[in-house]
Nucleic acid binder design. Structure first.
Lengths: 196, 196
DNA sequence: TAATTGATTGTCAATTTTGACAATTAATAT
DNA sequence: ATATTAATTGTCAAAATTGACAATCAATTA
């Protein structure tokens, strides 16, 4: 009995606000005041539902990583059996799929990982998963590919993908998107030149 | 007459400290306290020599951009006439040339540009210069190259270069450096496949 | 030596940020 | 209706951050 708990939805509300703030002002720039304003909740409620500052950041990183893993897994599961490289390009560089806010948060977390041992390990593992997954996707079209070359291409794709969204604060993402997509294409085609 | 001014050296001292702090804690995380500690000067002296917070950031961005332009111009001037692409790769991805601190500051500035009109314009121009310069370098080896492809490759190289250093907080730069270099090589070779 | 310029130190108040908790209000079950 | 659970509001103090300025000390020139 008793009043029903809103902890779940409130926490969601708070973490979403935190995510928006981090994408705009960075981790250090996201004061509890700003977050509470963004969430439309009193600052006391942040503490009540989500704990203090450290706990908030902890939860944010867990949440972002989990979200990323889930969306990425979903994306992979929908990839076609053949011609998977094109679908990968679409997924990474289609305008309507892009979520620069999300990537900006990831990058903020990577940056902050320099001062946080735990966070560093989390983000290291995340990054390794990401590149490994791209490698296995690429392997579907070219099972005999050289591993070193796969590493290079996977890293290149991740770089281009990240860099494109990291230009969002400059309002240059859309200007560079075609170049980004084409560069990624060029990279992939070094693996399967016949697929042109 | 009067006591000789140390403004020049002190300002240099302060901006170097600020640069180190920004690379580690980000712009918002670089409090005057931290900067003064890093510089080994009293906080009052920061204000005395370099002004308030906004002026500090202003000067940092001007300084970083000027430094970048100068070093980059120097680098370009030393490039060979032929086989320039290899020299470019060495310059961008040789371990001993790498200056991740510098790139982390650039990235912090790009991020902060989202909330600062002036800074945004500066960094937009900086980015445009950077990619344009890379394009003209690539043109030396392959004067007849397609412009769209050049744009793509230039953006790809910049992305790989940036991304590699942005992994510095994860201690993964060295792990990924060979892949980065090779990916860049693959991209360039799409322009001059004969040069393999 | 005296005057002058500027570095250096120290202090103070205003503002922001954070953490903690008490008091109140709302929703549910018995 | 009442007890219970938890959301919500409000307040307070501690700490951190910043801006401003006064006072002192150091180096130079006339």
């Amino acid at each position: 009995m008793g009043r029903p708990s809103k902890k779940a939805e409130r926490t969601e509300q708070i973490l979403q606000a935190l995510q928006r703030c981090v994408a705009r002002y960075g981790l250090e720039g996201s004061s509890l005041e700003r977050i509470s304003e963004e969430a439309g909740l009193q600052r006391s409620l942040l503490r009540h539902f989500a704990g203090n500052r450290d706990e908030l950041i902890q939860q944010l990183s867990d949440r972002v990583i989990a979200q990323s893993d889930q969306q990425w897994a979903e994306f992979i599961s929908y990839l076609p059996e053949q011609n998977v490289s094109n679908a990968l390009l679409d997924g990474l560089f289609a305008e309507d799929h892009s979520d620069s806010e999300f990537i900006l948060v990831i990058e903020s977390l990577i940056f902050a990982a320099g001062q946080d041992e735990q966070l560093r390990k989390k983000m290291q593992a995340w990054m390794a998963r990401f590149t490994d997954d791209i490698k296995s996707i690429l392997l579907r079209d070219t099972p005999a590919a050289d591993d070193e070359q796969l590493n290079a291409i996977a890293f290149g794709l991740v770089s281009i993908y990240f860099n494109l969204d990291s230009l969002a604060p400059l309002n240059m993402s859309e200007q560079y998107r075609p170049s980004a997509r084409r560069a990624a294409e060029l990279l992939i085609n070094t693996l399967t030149p016949a697929a042109r």
